[in-house]
Design a protein around this nucleic acid. Sequence first.
RNA 1: GUGGGUAUAGCUCAAUAGGCAGAGCUCCGCACUGUGGAUGCGGUGGUUGAGGGUUCAAAUCCCUUUACCCACCCCA
Length: 424
Amino acid sequence: MAKNQTIKSVKGTTDFYPEEMALRTWLYNRIRQLSESFGYEEYEGPMLETFELYAAKSGEELVEKQSYVFEDRGGDKIALRPELTPSLARMVAKKQGQLNFPLRWWSFGPFWRYERPQKGRTREFFQWNIDMVGLDSPESDAELIIIAAEFLKGFGLTSKDVQIKINHRALMQEQLVKLGISEDLIPPAFQLIDKKDKLKFEKWQDYAIEIGFSNNQLDQLNELLDNKELWKESETLSRIFEIVEAYGLSDYVSFDFSIIRGLLYYTGTVFEAWDTGGEHRAIFGGGRYDNLVGDVGGNPISGVGFAVGNLVLSLILEQMGLTPDYSKTPADVFVTVFSEELMLESIKIGQELRSAGIKTASHLKLSKLGSQFKYADRIGARLALVFGPDEFDADEVKIKNLQSGDQIAVKRDQLVNKITDLLE
RNA sequence: GUGGGUAUAGCUCAAUAGGCAGAGCUCCGCACUGUGGAUGCGGUGGUUGAGGGUUCAAAUCCCUUUACCCACCCCA
């Protein structure tokens, strides 16, 4: 079939063929296990939300340019969710009186952002979100950072491969005020700091002057950015580092005054994880948000959490050879068909094995034994069964080990036991 | 939204200066009608992304267009 005749997939979406799906499921299972080990419960929000939910607080770029928005048949403005935290806030606000705080919740699902796809970025992607809502303390910030570090460590990534960089928005604000930066210059100042590593130094300085920094303030800002001990000025960060150290994970976590986070709703601790080579974009990002539940109509309640996309993480893991081998074994046992007369009996044999909990695929048409073995080998089956006239007369089934080529005959009534033994 | 690159068989890629569109792998068949992987032989598979132009002749040169990739922006 000619390529230009196949119907195209939607730009920026991913087809999960069995191999890719195996990776996704593997990732999901690790996430579930880790989340549950810290006592977090799985939840899920809708893929569709009102546009209004994001309009307030998610940040202009994300809402105005990157959201999939459409009008439904009733005329309501609907968005495909570009992130989960607002949905979480909405769900918490809705049942606020009935929930046991602090909540420890996690989720893994699809998100959509209308962007130009490139390496580590697609329009449809998956995210792990994990949040604690209803407890505002350095200890709760630290727990999320610990989970993040354990997550990375669990894959075999070392502190030399990845780093979690943390900062605190209140600390930044304080320090900027100390420089005599006026209230309305603070948001642009955050942007400026965010751009420090992205622009050439001279350009960055020009930009600073342009938004209203004095030369003196600029010098002082540079001093701030070079100050690796600045976190000591923040009680919260000090406590977080203390706890992280108690967990033996200090290597993974470092202070970085340039971590800002684009989303507007973060109010306290903010953190991101990066590969130390600086080759990829951020692996995850998160932080504390004080006002979000209040913003969607609930009583103000604080939360902290982070989101990990599947793409950058997968790229890094694959690059470092930390993904599992996908030994493709959809079926451990493959039952061949010898002849028209014996086909039903072969299918029955397959059914017996399945009843015993053995993953079994049956051949469903007459064809040469050779091609049946070939197929069995290709799908990764470990054993192939032959049931022909000779076996029928002797009340036996032949079991062939597809790796070694050895073949044995067993009595029909011992087949399940024998195969169970062989597969162990 | 801005900039760069690529497009030839299912996949990876060739095709001198414009001159018969090819190879490897895969797939299918046979050697091997009760046994897969190895080997050998044979075969299927193409409107060279699409549309137009120049030319005796276009995968190749020109124009238009689409898709994909990469970077910026932004972010997971």
